[in-house]
Computed example of a mutant assay.
Amino acid sequence: MRDKRKNAVREAIVDTASRLFYQQGYVNTGINQIIEESGVVKSSLYQGFRSKEDILMAYLESAGAATDEALLNATRQYEEPQRKILAVFDYLINLVQQSDYYGCNFLNIISEIPKDAERVRNQIKKQKDGVRNLFRSILAPIDKGHLADEIYILFDGALIANKVHGEIWPVTTARSMAQLLMK
């Protein structure tokens, strides 16, 4: 019973912090706001997390797992590797048009943290390397694994340009470029 309560408190903290970090940024989100909006007491927060960075790590891990699953689900609809890659970009096209889309979770955080926040940077790099490896694994069967980094750059570049411009054209352009690369 105690473990269930502890897990529920942890989940409430991570869910609240995830929403706040994503919507208003890591730097602009304070511990007191997380406590207030999650409905937990301060001592419960510190029983589960030593620091705000620990909460951030839980957020990044959770967002990473959700992103990995979403990208894999997009690719599972197709057999042909080229079509799988385009499906990832189609997923992005849909994603960036959502009213509750505030940009890539990981790119948002990396732009806010100091250069010496190694643990956070490593977690973000791990996530981004996972995307690169997804592209590599999709393209390897057709001997085009060497294009994985180029496609990854198009993927992340599209996310950055979409954040800057607030428009869909960076993602549709990146999709077109990926399609040309794979011919």
Score class of each variant (00 low, 15 high):
Lys4Trp: 08
Lys6Ile: 15
Ala8His: 00
Ala8Asp: 14
Ala12Lys: 00
Asp15Asn: 09
Thr16Leu: 12
Ala17Ile: 12
Ala17Leu: 00
Ser18Tyr: 02
Arg19His: 05
Gln23Thr: 14
Gln23Glu: 15
Gly25Ala: 00
Tyr26Ser: 00
Asn28Trp: 00
Glu37Ala: 05
Ser38Glu: 08
Ser38Phe: 06
Ser38Asn: 10
Lys42Tyr: 10
Asp54Phe: 05
Met57Asp: 09
Ala58Ile: 00
Tyr59Met: 07
Ala63Val: 13
Ala65Glu: 15
Thr67Gln: 09
Ala70Asp: 06
Arg76Ala: 02
Tyr78Ser: 03
Pro81Gln: 01
Gln82Gly: 06
Arg83Asp: 03
Val88Glu: 05
Tyr91Trp: 13
Tyr91Leu: 11
Tyr91Cys: 13
Asn94Gln: 11
Tyr101Lys: 04
Tyr101Gln: 07
Ile109Glu: 04
Ser111Tyr: 15
Ser111Val: 03
Ile113Cys: 06
Gln123Leu: 08
Gln123Asp: 11
Gln123Ser: 06
Ile124Ser: 06
Gln127Met: 06
Asp129Met: 10
Asp129His: 01
Asn133Lys: 15
Asn133His: 14
Phe135Ala: 12
Arg136Leu: 13
Leu139Ser: 05
Leu139Gly: 02
Leu139His: 03
Pro141Glu: 02
Pro141Cys: 04
Ile142Gln: 11
Asp143Gly: 07
Leu147Asp: 06
Ala148Phe: 04
Asp149Asn: 09
Glu150Ile: 00
Glu150Leu: 13
Ile151Thr: 09
Ile153Trp: 07
Gly157Tyr: 13
Ile160Cys: 12
Ile160Trp: 10
Gly166Met: 04
Gly166Tyr: 13
Glu167Asp: 08
Ile168Gln: 08
Met177Leu: 13
Gln179Ala: 11
Leu180Tyr: 04
Leu181Thr: 03
